[in-house]
């Protein structure tokens, strides 16, 4: 019984964090057709911005805010300087973003250290749920992740700006002909993507710790989720995040040595049966 509860609680948290990490990645692909291989680095840099802010004496909530706002500004700038000049050449976009990710790793590693660091919990204390100790920090983190995902969903489906993002991901020419300014919307999506990556990075740094090279693992997770769910599909990414999050948690409980294999096995299975991913190319 307690194993089931443990899997449910931990699985939910991990899945929600994975969803946060993957959503920005899939939105950039859906709207701009860009595979941003620096997305994992965005999450990692976001976490280190918070670590740096803490070192300078800021409180944890304030440091988290600096990280999220900082990445929301950094990501569009990154697009403007690195992606936009080579936008028409997908191979150059991949090479450029991958190279930039390695540069970011080195910059962060040299200014902090290459060792793993951990962010302190947001709130202390714990309670017992059917014999399983659950920290309040995990509850708060899950609630925040869920709120961010719900907020994003409402923004995309209920506001004119959000619908413009959806429209652009479905039909570029149609979007231009109703007067949606593609450049501005794409910059906005990069900002959202950067902010989401930062939130994911903060939580991951707080629960599992983070090191500069960790960004590669984050990118692999985001990439697996997005391919599993269907490139560019937001609901697909959500489904895939929960499938991968829970299967990894289950595997970790029953066969810890096989951790990391579950998601790859699932990915291979789905891609064999349904190469376009679970929810195909339907952006909505």
């Amino acid at each position: 019984m307690s194993v089931v509860v443990e899997v449910l609680v931990l699985g939910f948290l991990i899945s929600a964090l994975y969803a946060l990490a993957a959503l920005g990645f899939t939105m950039i692909f859906g709207v701009a057709g860009v595979l941003n291989l620096a997305h994992g680095a965005f999450a990692m840099v976001g976490a280190y911005v918070a670590i740096g802010a803490l070192d300078r004496g800021l409180s944890l909530p304030l440091a988290a805010l600096v990280a999220v706002v900082g990445m929301a500004l950094f990501a569009p700038l990154f697009y403007w300087l690195i992606v936009r000049p080579v936008e028409r050449h997908p191979i150059l976009v991949m090479l450029g973003t991958l190279l930039a990710a390695v540069v970011l790793e080195q910059i962060v590693g040299l200014s902090f250290s290459f060792n793993s660091q951990i962010l302190p919990p947001l709130v202390g204390g714990s309670f017992s749920l059917l014999g399983v100790r659950v920290t309040y920090d995990r509850v708060v983190a899950s609630a925040i992740a869920l709120a961010v995902i719900t907020g994003l969903w409402l923004f995309i489906h209920k506001t004119p700006q959000g619908k413009a993002i959806l429209a652009l991901s479905m039909e570029r020419k149609g979007a231009a002909l109703v007067g949606i300014p593609a450049r501005r919307v794409i910059l906005g999506v990069w900002a959202i993507s950067g902010a989401l990556a930062a939130v994911a990075g903060l939580f991951i740094a707080s629960f599992m710790g983070i090191s500069p090279l960790e960004e590669r693992a984050l990118l692999v997770i985001a990439f697996s989720i997005v391919v599993l769910g269907g490139l560019g599909s937001i609901p697909g990414s959500l489904w895939a995040a929960f499938i991968i999050g829970f299967s990894e948690t289950v595997v970790q409980q029953v066969a810890p040595e096989a951790q990391g294999l579950a998601s790859l096995a699932l990915l291979m299975l789905v891609l064999t049966l349904r190469p376009q991913g679970l929810l195909g190319r339907a952006a909505a």
Binding site: K163, M170, G174
Partner: peptide, 18 residues
């Protein structure tokens, strides 16, 4: 050049985007 996965209503309303 319609938005295929959006409703008829959303397509029409996006016409008034500007």
């Amino acid at each position: 050049s319609l938005f295929p996965y959006m409703s008829v209503l959303d397509n029409l309303l996006l016409g008034a985007y500007r």
